[in-house]
Design a protein around this nucleic acid. Structure first.
Lengths: 220, 220
DNA sequence: CTTTAAAAATGAACCCGTTCAAGTTTTTTG
DNA sequence: CAAAAAACTTGAACGGGTTCATTTTTAAAG
């Protein structure tokens, strides 16, 4: 009987993950108590802490699964982006956005981001930050591809502009998860508007890109 | 004797704020216990909770003071921005950045952001989000001013582009406070680089703006 | 198969933010 | 000025995340 201990360990881990996902989605992160999660996973509270360093650490396991899936889907989009700059950007970004609520609630996203910001030195945060960096790199890579095709101005720093576009979409995503009323459709409209501006600015000289709209009044 | 109660109240509030600011800076937000803050302010724990709804609420009072000051300084920069687009953007943004560590530590910023994201419906978060919106509006206003002067392309949506620029600087600021090693100088270099890209893209046709650098290789 | 050692599970105890019933001080009323 | 009401202070008690000494289970050694 090779590895009874290992099997039991894997089993308990799976049960904890399942229980946590269920309870987080059902009652929310704050309301889901460690004791509840442990009970449902049929382990004691102490055992839970042998598997995860703390409650936040447990959330990462779930969030990370989601983001890995998004990265994989995004990768397949990099090879052949649409020729239209706005469409290419929006298409890639929608891959990210449209996956976002598959397994995670907005509250779970908020909590994950929140913990990541507050404790940047933890493995949780480092992992999360690294996933962000990889998403950002995908946007840069897409811009570079478009640039090599001539769809984007050759004199632009694609890597830097990719970061700007990613930072923008990331911030919009934060707004999205912070507003329970906001739908994915709303978010997509916002990002399409922003991307249209960017596309108008970076489109190659010869491309038939639609030029941006006129300016609105300013504030403050 | 008009308002003994009012004077005592103001006094206690001042003492609590001072004690909290001191302890947060000295020992960090997490390590500063409510009991310690209350002791130092010469009130009981119960009394503390008559003045602030919770620990995070107390942080807002400090953070808000800092941001209000930044907004005021920023306002004075709006009327007469430098003609150079990159210089105008970087100048405004440096007002924000250079003030940021006057009264607050990185850890305090992280905590404030963290709480704001996790509990968006609280007054704390609403206030913080509103301050962000006002900063964003300042960036938009500056772009609009430059546009009216002809330093920025007339066909650009200044309000939308202002949001993009703000989202970018905000995200960079998050990176900054998440990395204890990173200095303000490092941050300013990063934002100058990003702004140079933006400036190159949005500069008015006739302006003598420096064109952006060549593109780097892409990733992923 | 016993014995010994290592690994893991357990729940009571601890810490700290928050709440609340009871007590105290200030203000208002007559 | 006394009595009643209102406003405020207080610290003990509560809840939930986390820790740790102890016990139990599995693996290794003889």
């Amino acid at each position: 009987m090779a590895g009874l201990r290992a099997r039991q360990k894997a089993d308990r881990n799976r049960r904890i993950l399942e229980a946590a996902g269920d309870l987080f989605r059902q009652s929310g992160y704050d309301a889901a108590r460690i004791e509840d999660i442990a009970d449902r996973a049929q382990v004691s509270v102490g055992t839970f802490y042998n598997y995860y360093k703390n409650k936040g650490d447990l959330l990462l396991a779930t969030v990370a699964m989601e983001v890995e899936e998004v990265l994989e889907t995004g990768r397949s989009r990099l090879a052949n982006p649409p020729g239209d700059v706005a469409a290419a950007l929006t298409g890639l970004i929608r891959v990210y956005y449209d996956h976002s609520l598959n397994y995670l609630t907005k509250e779970m996203w908020r909590t994950a981001m929140s913990i990541s910001i507050q404790h940047p030195e933890t493995p949780f945060s480092r992992h999360y930050t690294e996933l962000d960096a990889r998403l950002s790199a995908q946007v840069s890579a897409m811009l570079r591809t478009l640039q090599l095709r001539g769809a984007v101005r050759a004199d632009m720093d694609a890597a830097g502009m990719g970061e700007i576009v990613f930072n923008n979409l990331n911030q919009l995503f934060i707004h999205f998860v912070m507003d329970e009323e906001m739908t994915l459709a709303d978010l997509n409209i916002l990002i399409a508007r922003q991307n249209a501006i960017v596309a108008g600015l970076i489109a190659g000289e010869r491309s038939a890109e639609s030029r941006p709209q006129g300016a609105e009044g300013a504030a403050e």
